[in-house]
């Protein structure tokens, strides 16, 4: 008499599927944060009566060496207005926020042309500052 050998049951291990899916989700969330300017060194100026700045597609930063960055990429002041304008596109009023992160000690020679460029591009300027009451 011949015994028939049963086919071995092969399953893909599905115990860790939840973990894998969650990790993939987090991975893409981090990738989606394209405006990574965490490498830029700057200190915010302090002021009173601040409000939440919300979120925007366009951030202009002036670092401690007075270099100008748009969404984390260094560029010259001459390019700034056109680049902001193209980033803002046809966004309606109220959705044309441009965050300005200027180093506390940067001088008017640097930040005023930047403000002018934001103005020319039709941006709604938000100065990113630190509350005086903190610390």
């Amino acid at each position: 008499m011949k015994m028939k050998r049963g086919k071995p049951k092969v399953d893909i291990p599905s115990v860790a599927m939840g973990d894998i899916a969650f990790n993939l989700l987090i991975f893409f969330v981090i990738l989606a944060q394209s405006q990574d300017d965490s490498h830029i060194q700057w200190t915010p100026a302090k002021a009173d009566n601040l409000k939440g700045a919300g979120y925007t597609r366009v951030t202009v930063t002036i670092d401690k060496d007075q270099k100008v960055y748009l969404n984390g990429q260094e560029l010259s002041e001459g390019q700034l207005a056109s680049r902001i304008e193209s980033n803002l596109g046809d966004a309606p009023a109220g959705q044309r926020k441009v965050m300005l992160k200027a180093h506390s000690d940067c001088t008017a020679a640097k930040f005023e042309p930047v403000i002018e460029a934001i103005s020319q591009a039709g941006g709604e300027l938000v100065h990113i500052l630190e509350d005086k009451k903190q610390k």
């Binding site: 990790n23 944060q33 009566n49 939440g52 700045a53 300027l125």
Partner: peptide, 27 residues
């Protein structure tokens, strides 16, 4: 442990900013 690290990393990078707004018409 990995998920905890990622969670705190995401929390730290999405900390909301505060500031003052100024609406600028074209110069």
């Amino acid at each position: 442990a990995f998920n905890l690290i990622v969670f705190f990393l995401v929390c730290a990078s999405t900390q909301p900013d505060t500031g003052r707004s100024q609406i600028l018409p074209k110069s």
